[in-house]
Amino acid sequence: MSAAAPGRAAESGAAQGGGQVKSAVRTVELLEYFAGRPGMHSLAAVQEAVGYPKSSLYMLLRTLVELGWVETDATGTRYGIGVRALLVGTSYIDGDEVVAAARPTLDRLSDDTTETIHLARLDGTNVVYLATRQSQHYLRPFTRVGRRLPAHSTALGKALLATYSDEQVRSMLPESLHRLTENTVTDREKLIEELHTVRAQGYAVDREEATLGLRCFSVAIPYRTPARDAISCTVPVARLTPAHEQMIKDALFHARDRLTLATRRL
């Protein structure tokens, strides 16, 4: 998809869907643009990316600045995501039943493994981190709540994709996948072959595919089919031994069983 596609998609959707309001679609797409690109951006850069007419884009940006959804710099010529977006994101996390039900299990999994623990949700072809427990070690990864990564590059994403059929995965992902590191699987069919292994063994592994130096293990939480959420344990490869790896896998399976009970009515 080209850089200007979001704006064209909004206009196309408004014309074809019948129920979409163009200004509302543009507002959401603009906020998603800023959410996916931290920092401040010029009007020209935003216009080139979203493809909206510059005059209407400027008026929309000024309105969002006045409402606190977008911020501008001292010159008034560069724009970025505003604090209101943080308030809404926090509200989503605070009100999510799965996040609430998972807290005791995440705490226990963190204590059992002493490593970094994540709860994430599949959002299209990405995973979004909903909760994190930081490692107790000095050498540890850092992942913030709200971070988004391509599902194919993470153990969390692969654990979730494995709950879909091969044909569903083919319809979700392009043939060529984005590379994050030299270890990322970039061929869709090779990824599907790996998903067969994930289904058979019950867990997924990220072998330095999202971040060099880190290995991650993950299991899906089967309160829905296909699964929507998964938990993971991330450990620096320098600290990973066969015994520690086995302990992490066992702890993840126990955590999955506890979470399955905790989310059975959701």
Rank of each mutant, 00 (worst) to 15 (best):
P6S: 09
R8S: 11
A9G: 07
A10W: 02
S12E: 10
G13L: 15
A14H: 07
Q16M: 08
V21F: 08
K22S: 15
K22C: 14
S23V: 14
S23Y: 11
T27N: 10
T27E: 12
V28Y: 02
G36K: 09
G39T: 07
S42V: 02
V46R: 01
A49K: 05
G51W: 09
G51S: 08
Y52I: 06
K54G: 11
L57P: 04
T63S: 15
T63N: 12
L64F: 07
V65W: 08
V70G: 13
V70E: 14
T72A: 07
D73R: 06
D73M: 05
T75Y: 04
R78D: 10
I81V: 11
I81N: 08
I81Y: 06
G82R: 13
L87G: 13
L87A: 14
V88Q: 15
D94Y: 06
E97W: 03
E97H: 04
V98T: 11
A102F: 10
A102E: 12
R103N: 11
L106W: 12
D107G: 03
S110M: 09
E115V: 01
E115L: 01
T116A: 13
I117G: 08
H118V: 00
D123H: 07
T125E: 04
N126H: 08
N126S: 09
V128L: 09
L130Q: 14
S135G: 04
Q136L: 13
H137W: 10
R140G: 00
P141F: 07
F142L: 08
R144S: 13
G146K: 08
R147V: 01
R148D: 07
L149T: 13
L149S: 14
P150G: 05
S153M: 04
L160I: 00
A162N: 09
Y164F: 02
S165I: 03
S165V: 04
R170V: 09
S171M: 05
S171I: 00
S171F: 03
P174V: 02
S176A: 05
L180P: 00
L180E: 12
N183Q: 14
D187M: 07
D187V: 12
D187S: 13
R188D: 12
L195F: 04
L195T: 03
L195W: 05
T197C: 10
A200L: 07
A200S: 12
G202S: 06
Y203N: 07
A204Q: 03
A204N: 03
A204P: 00
A204K: 04
D206N: 09
A210D: 06
L212R: 11
L212K: 08
G213C: 03
G213V: 03
L214N: 08
R215A: 08
C216K: 11
F217P: 06
A220F: 00
I221H: 01
P222H: 07
R224T: 15
T225P: 03
T225S: 13
P226H: 00
R228K: 10
A230L: 02
S232I: 01
V237L: 04
A238S: 09
L240M: 09
P242F: 01
P242M: 02
E245P: 06
E245N: 10
Q246G: 11
Q246V: 00
M247S: 15
M247W: 10
I248R: 14
K249P: 05
K249A: 04
A251N: 14
F253T: 13
H254N: 15
A255M: 06
A255F: 05
R256K: 08
R256M: 06
D257K: 02
R258I: 02
L259S: 02
L259V: 02
L259F: 03
T260I: 03
L261K: 12
A262K: 01
T263D: 07
